[in-house]
């Protein structure tokens, strides 16, 4: 039997909201340590990796690891029947479940839904646990804003790191521009900008993926960008007390 209860069901809704435009069908994996998900977008350029640790749930039980194939669109239809302040419980009964049950619980209402599961044959990538040569932490809303602004000018965005900070730049048909974000150690942790640069990087990415990734900014006030030269970048949103959502994007490289 598998059972996982979110004290804050709104959080689960935010996670689904964050990934719904990146991936369509996903395998949700549950085992004794928690719930995880890994899925690529249809163009195989971006990858979503979610980890929710067992300790972050109000209640968690998983006797045998299981894989639940879900349509994100259908999952969202069911989640629309819950309130943002509801507690949400996910549950399966059988060893090889064909449905995933949802209980939405508020002060004055309990709702039950069953979502039909699918058998999905999905390519899983072995993402190495590497050290990155530049790691930048910055406010997630600031990153969202920069991507939106520069994305107007060109479809590719450049990222350059140095000991002084991080620079975003574009070159398009209409002209070019750059935005430098300075390091700061303000008392407000959500406004801090930190750069750990062992080796500076200079990379280019398709900004439209960043604009999709930025839907996850509702999960955390800070975003962590980890980069190495000519390698995929990872954008990480820490989900407080529960785990993290990591979004990988392959770079664009000079032909």
């Amino acid at each position: 039997m598998f059972e996982a209860k979110f004290e804050d069901g709104g959080l689960f809704k935010k996670i689904v909201e964050a990934i719904k435009e990146l991936v369509k069908n996903v395998n949700l994996e549950a085992n004794g340590t928690g719930i995880s998900l890994q899925a690529m977008d249809t163009s195989h350029v971006a990858l979503v990796a979610l980890q929710l640790n067992e300790k972050g749930f109000k209640k968690y039980r998983c006797e045998k690891s299981l894989t639940m194939g879900l349509s994100i669109e259908n999952l969202q239809k069911i989640l629309k029947c819950s309130g943002n302040d509801d507690q949400i419980t996910l549950r399966t009964q059988d060893e090889e479940p064909t449905t995933l049950s949802f209980t939405f619980e508020s002060k004055n209402r309990i709702s039950e839904f069953q979502l039909n599961l699918m058998s999905l044959d999905q390519e899983q990538l072995g993402v190495p646990d590497t050290e990155y040569s530049s790691v930048v932490r910055m406010p997630s809303n600031e990153f969202t804003k920069i991507c939106r602004e520069l994305g107007n000018i060109n479809e590719a965005i450049g990222i350059e790191t140095s000991k002084e900070g991080i620079k975003f730049y574009v070159k398009g048909d209409i002209g070019e521009g750059q935005v430098s974000v300075k390091i700061n150690d303000t008392e407000k942790p959500e406004e801090r900008v930190e750069c750990e640069v062992d080796e500076p990087v200079n990379l280019s990415f398709a900004v439209r993926y960043f604009n999709l990734f930025n839907k996850a900014s509702a999960l955390s006030s800070q975003v962590i960008l980890s980069m190495s030269q000519d390698q995929p970048l990872v954008i990480e949103y820490i989900i407080e007390e529960m785990g993290s959502l990591k979004l990988y994007l392959a770079p664009k490289i000079n032909d």
Partner: peptide
């Protein structure tokens, strides 16, 4: 000209 590289170039299939 910038070319988009797929993720499978970097990460092996499991």
């Amino acid at each position: 000209y910038l070319q988009q590289i797929p993720l499978s170039t970097f990460f092996p299939s499991r």
